[in-house]
């Protein structure tokens, strides 16, 4: 397993946000984490990327215990996150934002290669290369956040709500790109409210409810699971 969480609990002050989460992501997979607002999806992501310290449990990445590792060092190990709310640098140009994604890397030739790759995935970003991040539309910022996360050449890409606030056509497009990125060899852990899309694209998925994993299975299994259908897929 590339990533493994064992009984991870996490506190926000005195409120327990995660109640002993265990999940795993294998090399080459797309794994989705679905659940309602406030179920702890983004919190789980923050625990994995190191933005929030966990109270108990362990996080193992690529065979190494990273539970207590600083967030910036996890990037060096190969974990990259496109955060909830995009988190782009508003005063930097598109180009600078992407360069920030490659902050830990020194090989200029490889960085340029990856810039080309991101610009191929998101031609829109190439058009906007010099524009300041803060002035871009939500959809463009989302592309920028995903593209930036790719710039570290991650082993594991964490995507937190990549479809949030996007028009339906763009949602399709973003998921197509996620699959494409995965096919190019990057493992993906995806958090989504858009369960329909997430489950139909993911190899496996977990359902999170109030800080606990209540169900897991292949994407196809969960898509047809009656309780999942009821709770997350609406009347289809």
């Amino acid at each position: 397993m590339l990533l493994e969480l064992k009984d991870v609990t996490l506190m926000y002050g005195r409120i327990q946000a995660l109640h002993g989460i265990s999940l795993s992501v294998g090399q080459g997979e797309i794994v989705a984490l679905i659940g309602a607002n406030g179920a702890g999806k983004s919190t789980t992501m923050r625990a994995i990327s190191g933005l929030r310290p966990v109270a108990q449990g362990t996080i193992t990445f690529n065979g190494e215990d990273i539970t207590k590792l600083r967030a910036d060092l996890r990037v060096v190990r190969g974990v990259s996150q496109s955060p909830e709310g995009r988190g782009i640098f508003p005063g930097m140009s598109v180009r600078e934002n992407l360069e920030m994604g490659a902050y830990t890397r020194r090989n200029r030739a490889e960085i340029n290669e990856d810039l080309d790759r991101v610009f191929t995935l998101f031609p829109r970003l190439k058009e906007r290369e010099k524009q300041v991040g803060g002035t871009m539309s939500g959809g463009e910022q989302q592309m920028l956040a995903v593209g930036r996360a790719l710039m570290s050449r991650p082993k594991l890409l964490l995507l937190d709500e990549p479809s949030m606030g996007l028009a339906p056509m763009l949602i399709q497009q973003i998921f197509d790109i996620v699959v494409e990125i995965n096919q190019q060899g990057t493992t993906v852990l995806l958090v989504e409210q858009n369960a329909q899309q997430a489950l139909s694209r993911a190899h496996r998925a977990y359902v999170l409810e109030t800080g606990e994993i209540v169900k897991s299975g292949t994407g196809a299994e969960l898509l047809t699971d009656p309780s999942v259908k009821d709770a997350y897929l609406g009347v289809a």
Partner: peptide, 10 residues
């Protein structure tokens, strides 16, 4: 500009 994002960039 964004300390959390900066940490996520390494």
């Amino acid at each position: 500009q964004n300390p959390d994002s900066a940490a996520l960039m390494g």
